[in-house]
């Protein structure tokens, strides 16, 4: 049966378990295990490269050898379920949480979430930013009723650890890692306004405001929620900044 042979071959490629396939192979026994090893190495190394491209900051933090071990364990337990490999690796952050050797780096899963979020934003659909004049045309008494649709590249992040700072200090051009307060929480967003992915740390009240708008609340309700959290929330400046960033794509009344 073709399916059974293919299953056996896939086991060779992913885990190097060769026993089930051997009876089907005509190549002489002496040479065959090494040849099957080529398929295993091709599969494993190419998938490690895929994860390495998606998670350069994690790789820099833990080092190449640790990252290889992490990637190999992940590939074994979470092989790709579809062939579009820029979507492979979304489950790595959760996997890191359960990966015992990473237990003494409790910030690692959230930094990985930020990296995956950037990958998602990079490949998300294009959209044009809302023209600020649309907002200027809204009568003052209706401003609170505005609802926005947001860019398909927008991702909101909230963490108990300084993920954005950790990401920044682990960029290739940073050769000296400064002192970091690992207990400092950070929230923020990732956005791809045109072709470059950007990210910004924002205060918790701004994240609350963005989260409300993203889930379809009116500008009035979102602003009340933000003010409840922090009564110095500055609506005008925050709104202006997000119009510049291109966070919103359309407004409705």
């Amino acid at each position: 049966m073709l399916h059974d042979l293919q299953k056996s071959f896939a086991d060779v490629a992913l885990t190097n378990s060769v026993e089930a396939l051997l009876p089907h192979v005509a190549t002489p026994r002496g040479a065959i295990e090494r040849r099957l090893g080529v398929y295993h190495a091709n599969t494993l190394n190419s998938l490690i490269d895929v994860l390495s491209a998606a998670y350069p900051v994690i790789q820099r933090i833990v080092g190449d050898r640790f990252f290889q071990a992490l990637a190999k364990d992940f590939i074994k337990t979470h092989p790709p379920q579809q062939p579009t490999l820029f979507r492979y690796g979304d489950a790595l952050p959760d996997f890191i949480s359960s990966f015992a050797p990473a237990n003494d780096l409790p910030y690692l899963p959230d930094v990985a979430r930020l990296e995956w979020t950037r990958v998602e934003a990079y490949f998300a659909a294009d959209s044009a930013a809302l023209n600020p004049e649309r907002l200027a045309e809204v009568p003052a008494e209706q401003i609170a009723d505005i609802k926005f649709s947001v860019s398909p590249t927008l991702r909101l992040l909230e963490s108990d650890v300084p993920i954005f700072t950790l990401w920044h200090v682990n960029q290739p051009d940073q050769d000296r890692v400064p002192e970091i307060d690992f207990s400092h929480p950070e929230s923020g967003f990732v956005l791809r306004p045109a072709h470059t992915v950007m990210q910004r740390v924002v205060p918790m009240e701004t994240l609350i405001w963005l989260r409300a708008l993203t889930s379809g609340e009116t500008l009035g309700t979102a602003t009340e929620l933000a003010l409840t959290h922090e009564n110095t929330f500055d609506l005008q400046n925050t709104l202006r900044q997000h119009l510049v960033d291109g966070t919103f794509t359309e407004l409705y009344l």
Partner: peptide
């Protein structure tokens, strides 16, 4: 070649047995 078995994607171009069953498939 094949690279998908039981909805798992193996990132390599694995060769087929050249049988009538494979040809039909």
């Amino acid at each position: 070649s094949f690279s998908v078995v039981d909805d798992i994607y193996v990132n390599d171009l694995l060769p087929l047995p050249y049988t009538e069953e494979a040809l039909v498939t």
